[in-house]
Each structure stands twice: as structure tokens, then as C-alpha cells.
Design a protein around this nucleic acid. Structure first.
Length: 120
RNA sequence: CGGUACAGCCGUGCUAUCGGCUUUCCGGUAACGGAAGGCAGGAAAGUCCGGACAGCACAGGGCAACGCACCACCUAACGGGUGGGUGCUCCGCGAAAGCGGGGUAACAGACAGUGCCACAGAAAAUAACCGCCCCGGUAUCCGGGGUAAGGGUGAAAAUGUGGGGUAAAAGCCCACGGCAGUAGCAGGUAACUGUUAUUGCGGGUAAACCUUGCGUGCUGAAAUGCCAUGUAUACGGUCGUUUGAGGGCUGCCCGUCCGAUGACCGAGGGUAGGCAGAUACAGGCGUUCCAGUGAUGGGCGCCGCAGAUAAAUGAUAGCAGUUCCGGUGCAAACCGGGAUACAGAAUCCGGCUUAUACGCUGUACCGGGUG
RNA sequence: UGGCUGGUAGCUUAACCGGAUAAAGCUCCAUACUACGAAUAUGGAAGAUGCGGGUUCGAAUCCCGCCCAGCCAU
């Protein structure tokens, strides 16, 4: 699943994240989206820092994912998304929360455009 | 009392809202839902040692390689720990001898052998440059010989002091010492210490090769066992079938065992999911119990305490705790602001090493105050 | 998870079974040549053994512990 996502998925960047996504058939019907998070060990050699960034990212996504769910409620296809952290500094919670708001709006928009192109 | 350094201990708590992983039980064909419980460290780190465990059909022997190195004990084991011995060093007492205490040491062998010791110096290891002494000669000098007392060089120069002795000298001889070997006696489990006799005295380096003693079979949880899915018992080449290719996860040799629908190479096809291993044991906590100087062992009581696999153990807010700075106040205290480390399990244990804010304890040094 | 290499001036390399001042090229600066540069020639300067400890008379070299960089197996 992750391999095909990285090979065939569409991508865009909103600092400090690079987002890879694609429509997919997931292993469960319970949720419309599955998401993954990663942090480079080259940029953050200590495991504590990587854990901190991943936890913050997951938390920001969790608090705002309802936007994405509502947007996807209309059509039956599911979505696989991957978030790669690209900054070299450890973020703080409020700014990262705002960034995720932007990212999720962009994701909804990109997905719609992809749909309309596919139909056309 | 304060500061600095080192060693050891400790290494935050509560509430609210929203989550995550996991164990057991209940419901459900299942997906999943509900209830109860648990959820990161002293170093989880570095991966420097030692084991457990697993595989290699776990005969065996030799060489090589690697590791360790005062002694005894602890331990599953160790290169770890405890206690002791010796050397070095520091402190205290003392006139000194010495006694007491602390720290520290890769602490077997240089009397098995080989190598190396720059520069300087006559000479760096079976030492004659100057000097001293003797003899000979063509005699202010040259040649031969003796001599390690004196000189200077160097990191290091041939056992110290005194006496005898001699041409001059020398452990050449003697006395008292120093160091080392051997043997005896006494103490000690031992290292070793004391003492007597005797032999000897030409340095350092083994974190140079090496010698001696002891130890180590190799591999490493991505090990290994099983289940599921799927393909190609096809193609080309080499070797071989009891006269043995090749292999048995050890570098070599011997030996031994396996071995024919075989082994290896090339090119290609398929799979790359799951379960076990894997969390109940060298387990944790407590103990004014017992043995021991101690490491540690035994007894007793209580507890069940992470188990993931693109990898959970969290996020936000508030309050409290500790501490620093500023202000108010006689003080207690209050108000405002800041700081709160190092760091994240990955098969599991025992050590070692390294990183660590605040606080506590101890030791050393420095400074100040009081008596 | 296991294993293996390496760390020397700003850069690229020497000196690696110990020997004193750590060498060379490129670089840099000045002068000459030129209208000005480049090139060339001459002269000159600065600068390094990753860090801490040990062995030794003496350590870049030997040993131990850290730090950093890179590689391999799967």
C-alpha cells in the first residue's frame, strides 16, 4: 500500500510538510482516510525529537480531520495520505495547528480537481 | 556560611477535555463494541565485555588465531564486583625509626631468545675520548699495554659508604648496607611478610616480537521452527554417481560423517504475508531475620509491573511543587517574570562506559564570619 | 541488529612496525612584465595531527575511552 502510494500518488508541499495522497481501496470500510507520518532521521538524529514531531503532527491531524471527512462524505472512494516533515527545527503546537488547517483545505481542493479531471 | 571540582542518591505531582497500544473477560460468524487492568529509563544510549536461548548430524586430535594476566572470594558468566598483598603517591602524628588513614596501578616473565634505544656522547651494552699508571723509542712527541676512581654528554653510563690493596686501579678482598635468585624455618587458604644460610650483581623497553600459564568450536532473533500464497522437476555451461562432484555456516591439516531426481555457475520465473521465538523469570519491592569484614547468598512477606513491528506509551489547558530574579514588607508572606536536565524500549538478562537541570549526601580545595 | 574502515594547513595528499623543526602542491600576499588583467618569473607569509587519558626518555604513529564521517550484510 505504502509502496504504491509513493510510486503512483500525487504530491504537493505546504511548508513544513510534503503531502502524498491518492484515492485507494483501504483494508477497512470504517474510515474514509488512512494517514501516515514520517520524520527524517538524518535531520533529527535523536529518537526523542522524532517522536515529539510525529506526535504533534498526529495530534494536529486528529483535531481537524473532521473537515476532510465531511468533504469526502459525498463520494464513496477512500483516500490514503502520507505526511513527510521537511523542516529542520522542532515546531510548536499553535503554528503547526494553523499549518494543518491550510494543508487539509488544500488536500480537499486538490482531490476535487483530480476527480473532475478524471471524469473529463 | 558561601563557592568550585569530583563521587553517589534522586530525577516532579494533580485535575479537565480529546486520543493511542496492549492483556484478560463478555457479546458478535466476522468487522467490531463494552468492562476491568497495565503502558516507557537510570541510563531505554554507546554496542565495549559476559551469558541465557537457537542453529550448525554438538565424535575427536594438532597447528594457527584471539583474549586474559598479583592472590583469594562473589557470580550463570565476565575483561565486572568485594576483600587482601605489593609498588607509587598524598595527609596526620612523631626528633627519627615508624604507626594510622586516604588515593592509585594493563601489577606474569627483561636470569629463555631476537630486535630497538634518535640527537648528544669516547662508549647505549661483553664501554678507553680526556685523565691516571707502566714499558719502549729517533723523546715538549709517538707507539704498545693496564685501569671504569675522576671529567663531560644524555631520559638512561654499569651495586652505595668506609677500609685494605696496587705501578695506577677495580667486588680484586673485607665490614656494614641495597637488589635479585635458590633452599630451610615461622606466620598466612594464597599473593606475600619476617628470618637464617648460600649464590650472584653490565641499563631500559614485552600498550616491540615473544615466552609461560589459563581460557575460547563457529554463527547470531533479520538466529531458528512452523503455516499460508505462488512459480519452471523448464533453458545454457562445468564437474560427478562407490575409483566420490560437492558439502557438514571453524583459518589450515588429520580424522570422521552426509552424499546422487546430485552439486556449482549463468540467465530467468515466483513469493516477500502470518504464527511461534517474544516477555514468569539469574523477576520486582520490602525486611532492626540469618551467615559473611564485604561483594553476595539464604529465609520470610507482598506483587504480576510495556510488548510494538512504517513501530503505541500522547496532545492541549490550568493548578500545585522546586528554584532564580525584581518589587512591597520589620518579618511571615504576597505580586510579577523566568527556569524545570539527559534522553525513547525493539529477543532477554548481568556489568562497563558515556550524557544528565534542580535538590540531597559525602570528600577535597578556596573565601568569609564567630568563639 | 551485526560487522568494517577512516579522521593531518582553506583544499588534495606525505610522513604510519615511535625520534623531536610534521613535508609538498594548489591557495593567499607583494614585486616585475602589461594600458589593465590572465599566464609566467622572483620573493614572502600564515596555517594542521578530532577530543580526553595512559605506556615510553620521547606519541601524528602504540593502548584505552569518547566524538564525528563513511561503507558492508540482510
Amino acid at each position: 500500500m505504502i509502496e504504491t502510494l509513493f510510486r503512483d500518488g500525487k504530491a504537493f508541499s505546504v511548508f513544513p510538510y510534503r503531502v502524498i495522497y491518492m484515492p485507494a481501496r483501504l483494508t477497512t470500510n470504517k474510515y474514509p482516510v488512512q494517514a501516515g507520518f514520517s520524520v527524517s532521521s538524518r535531520k533529527f538524529p535523536r529518537a526523542v525529537d522524532r517522536n515529539r514531531i510525529k506526535r504533534l503532527g498526529r495530534e494536529c491531524y486528529r483535531l481537524q480531520k473532521h473537515q476532510l471527512y465531511e468533504a469526502l462524505q459525498a463520494d464513496p472512494t477512500q483516500l490514503a495520505v502520507f505526511f513527510i516533515y521537511t523542516d529542520k527545527k522542532i515546531p510548536d503546537f499553535p503554528t503547526l495547528r494553523d499549518k494543518f488547517s491550510v494543508i487539509l483545505k488544500r488536500l480537499v481542493k486538490e482531490n476535487k480537481m483530480q476527480k473532475s479531471v478524471g471524469k473529463a
